[in-house]
Design a protein around this nucleic acid. Structure first.
Length: 373
DNA sequence: GAGATTTGACCATT
DNA sequence: AATGGTCAAATCTC
């Protein structure tokens, strides 16, 4: 898989080269054509590498969604399949691809629900704390597979950063329900919450209920391509799909805004000496509508256009690692998604304080549930 | 030390 | 009164 990543990086480097030389090559379309074809060839090569892995994943997903397969059988196959793949692919996305918040709904309602959770913190000490909302509309439930390795009681990563604020035994359920809210609730008054509960009859499947939408930027590292969950069982608010990142720069992203066309990426894992690698895929491609590089994306995917959420996540809060295999989806198989936007959000690269970086593989200690790398 | 998690208690809703 | 959602102090992790 490292070789694949290296190939991707090389393609990115070529892209940066094209960008840097665009002024010089403005009157030399032959050169631009040559370079773009080279880029396409590189990414086609990547695609072929990834597609073979992706096929294996599809087999797993079909099995998991089959009613004939018990949860144990699914898990066994799941773990067997992971051995075929690179060992850094986490379960949740290996099976389900993208998080539930990745629907291509275009611009969504991003207005903070000021009457509910956003004011909860400040009102905590008031005389009347609002405990449960009436109506309870903006809610959506999906089912996701347990992580493929390590602590199976941990909920699958979904591309957002959550902070657990409660856990409760639920009547009639073998497993407790965990309550999470957006990590950036305080910073951005983000009202997004989720409840995670394991199913009684399928202990390796989590039922995740999302409530409210993310209004924060930094937690918005969710991919934009489709999110095939095991089962979407409830969607009470048809006009309010699950968390979708806000298309606004973070409050402290002055440097970022000046980098709209910059292509700097810091490659994480090379402590202190971050290597500058090709480009910020989201900023350069995620919103591009007419640029040559965006056109390259369209050529590769046969689709294109469409605005996507911004990437984000910072510090140790971000434990999400999504496989290159999913990046293949994002880049090549998503007809409705901008390829580079999807590529960014597929998790190989993360924006960190305005500078995208690569996540190192995360492995959970099966005995302690802690993270090791 | 900062931030995340755990867990018993509180309280709104049914 | 039962139940579920949230708070917040204690504890844990990095």
């Amino acid at each position: 898989m490292d070789e694949t990543i290296a190939t991707i990086l090389y393609g990115c480097k070529l892209g940066k080269e094209v960008e840097a030389n665009l002024p010089n090559w403005a009157n030399q379309p032959a050169i631009i054509l040559s370079k773009t074809e080279e880029i396409i060839e590189v990414f086609n090569n990547v695609r072929e590498r990834l597609m073979s892995h992706h096929h294996q994943q599809q087999v797993v997903q079909e099995w998991l969604s089959s009613s004939a397969a018990t949860s144990h059988q699914a898990l066994e196959l799941f773990h067997a399949a992971e051995n075929m793949l690179d060992h850094r692919v986490p379960a949740a996305f290996a099976v389900h691809g993208m998080p539930p918040g990745s629907d291509q709904m275009g611009l969504q309602q991003q207005v903070m629900d000021a009457s509910h959770d956003s004011s909860r913190g400040a009102a905590a000490s008031s005389t009347q704390r609002q405990r449960r909302r009436t109506g309870d509309t903006d809610r959506r439930t999906v089912r996701l597979a347990a992580p493929r390795m390590g602590n199976l009681e941990l909920p699958p990563e979904d591309g957002y950063t959550w902070r657990k604020y409660g856990q409760k035994e639920i009547l009639g359920s073998r497993f407790p329900r965990a309550y999470y809210r957006c990590t950036h609730q305080k910073l951005y008054h983000c009202p997004a919450k989720k409840q995670v509960q394991r199913l009684d009859d399928h202990p390796y499947v989590f039922e995740v209920t999302y409530r409210s939408q993310h209004t924060c930027y930094m937690s918005a590292i969710a991919p934009t391509v489709l999110a095939p969950s095991v089962e979407e069982i409830n969607h009470q608010a048809t006009t309010t799909p699950p968390p979708a990142p806000l298309l606004l720069p973070p409050p402290t992203s002055a440097s970022l805004s000046g980098h709209w066309l910059s292509m700097d990426i810091k490659q994480q894992g090379e402590a202190g000496t971050s290597t500058t690698t090709p480009f910020d895929m989201q900023r350069d491609f995620g919103h591009g509508t007419g640029g040559s590089l965006a056109s390259i994306c369209n050529v590769m995917t046969g689709g294109g256009g469409g605005a996507g959420p911004s990437g984000g996540g910072y510090g140790r809060e971000v434990d999400h690692y999504q496989p290159v295999v999913d990046m293949a989806d994002a880049m090549f198989n998503s007809g409705s998604s901008n390829c580079m936007n999807g590529l960014l959000h597929s998790g190989i690269w993360y924006a960190d304080e305005g500078i995208a970086r690569r996540r190192e593989p995360v492995v959970r200690d099966p005995f302690r549930g802690s993270l090791t790398t």
